[in-house]
Design a protein around this nucleic acid. Sequence first.
DNA 1: CATTTCACCTGGTGGC
DNA 2: TGCCACCAGGTGAAAT
Length: 287
Amino acid sequence: MPELPEVETVARGVDRRVRGDRIEQAWFGNRPQSFKNPPARQAKGLAGRTILGVHRAGKHIVFELGAAAGAAGARGRNPSQTNAPDAQWIVHLGMTGRLLVTTPDAAVAPHTHARLELASGCELRFQDPRRFGRLEFRDLGSGIAFEAHGAEPLVIGTREFAELFQKRRMPIKAALLNQALLAGVGNIYADESLFEAGIRPRRRTNRLTAADLERLRLALRRILQHAIRLGGSSVSDYVDADGERGFFQLEHCVYQRTGEPCRRCQTPIRRIELAGRGTHYCPNCQH
DNA sequence: CATTTCACCTGGTGGC
DNA sequence: TGCCACCAGGTGAAAT
């Protein structure tokens, strides 16, 4: 399932392939739950725009878009010399979303909900069988720029991280999954970072010491960075923008290893349900 | 207000 | 071999 490392990998791959390209036209499907605003409006807003760059914010992929070229610039306004974006396209992959750069003649996979034809001849395709993903177009002339609600786990410092959790009483794993606190952590990396930090998932956040929280912050950062280097975790059907799988699933210590021996102490990994999610930990290494 | 639960989805899996 | 119940989980709304 796409979490921060997977989304980062996709965003980098897409950026490398489409930065500077122009969207000739866009085709959208009609499954309403895939769209935060009407697909016809998204298609119209995207057509003709230039892709200035693509980056990740939390679990979202943000396309920064420049004004439609050509005719639009002729009308008195400066043919915007600046690279300031005037629109954004925001992609959330949900559980099973894929964002792929393909050739136009590649077979269109089932559950493809959007296709962007680019001036270079490539196509950018969004497919999502389970439809937990979301597509959103924002015109920055009339709306506000996208912002992830939570802090970036790779950037946040010691004090700010501790302040996020010290006042709350929920289990630490539930807090890690809360995107309004930290943006980008999902089920895999919550379990793996709690193992690395030696903290049980049910521990209440306000009962954690400053040392616990700092170990957790560093564990999160180390694991997320390592996972990004390995192209993310391909546990179900995750692939990057070129259709390639990641390799971090080979290094999981607890996630989906129920009953298997802990890599550190050989104790069987235990599975519980927490916040409605399968949760995995080592009863010996985590306290 | 803070926290917990549940519905939304479909492909893959395991049991019979 | 076929059929079906069940599970996976990110998010936001509803419930507690």
